[in-house]
Simulated assay, not measured.
Amino acid sequence: MTPRIREATPADIEPAVATLSAAFADYPFTRHTLAADDHLTRLADMQRLFITHIGLPHGRVWVSDNAHAVAVWTTPESTAIAEVFTDFAPQLAHIAGDRAAISARTESALAPHRPTTPTWFLGTVGVHPESQGQGLGKAVIEPGLRAADATGTEAFLETSLASNVTLYRKLGFDIVAEIDLPDDGPKTWAMRRKPAPTPA
């Protein structure tokens, strides 16, 4: 059975935060950039901020019916993103805790590899551990890819898990950079997907 994927509403925020927190509990990137003390609370706070202040008002968010799969995108129309991140920089630093400086250096290391042209950027995607292996990851990403294809726009993402690279390759992404993050951080892959050709 094909899972039903829909656009998120404010009612989905807390279920989506719970899913992403569970999915990223041991993710190398967030373990590197968020303090270890009360880590799961910090992770939830970060995901909540991203969904509430970036994804829903300025981007696109898709979820499965029970919000056990979540994908949060920024789009070429997400013109206020830089200002929002600037406004929330103190809060993000607080969430990172004693890893704030490392988080800042990490962002600086990734920035040169990020697109400077209009792009659909997959900021975060996760499937609750209870629902993994059911095709939900692919299903929740695909609406964003279709939307990008409809406007002839590239898509972009970053991942710090080698096992994710295979999934993203199957979705049409190619590696454009492999970055060894500073401060003994994990290797991170920047991946880009060209828009699918328009059927004749």
Rank of each mutant, 00 (worst) to 15 (best):
T2W: 10
P3I: 10
P3T: 12
R4F: 11
P10Y: 11
A11E: 05
A11C: 08
D12N: 13
D12Y: 14
P15L: 03
P15H: 06
V17D: 03
V17N: 04
A22P: 07
D26L: 00
T30R: 00
R31Q: 05
T33I: 10
D38K: 11
D38P: 06
R42C: 04
L43H: 00
D45C: 03
M46Y: 15
M46K: 13
R48Y: 07
I51D: 11
H53E: 15
I54Q: 13
P57S: 15
V61R: 02
V63W: 09
S64E: 12
N66V: 09
W73R: 15
T79W: 14
A80S: 13
V84F: 05
F85H: 11
D87W: 07
D87F: 11
H94W: 07
A96W: 01
D98N: 15
S108C: 02
A109K: 08
A109P: 11
A111W: 02
P112M: 09
T116I: 12
T117H: 15
P118C: 13
T119L: 11
L122G: 14
T124G: 09
V125S: 08
V125R: 07
G126D: 02
H128L: 00
P129N: 04
P129W: 01
G135H: 11
L136D: 11
A139H: 10
P143A: 14
G144N: 15
L145G: 14
D149F: 04
A150N: 03
A150Y: 02
G152N: 04
A155M: 10
F156S: 10
S160R: 02
A162T: 10
V165R: 08
L171T: 04
F173W: 10
I175P: 09
A177W: 07
P182Q: 03
G185C: 03
W189D: 03
R192A: 01
P195T: 04
P195Q: 07
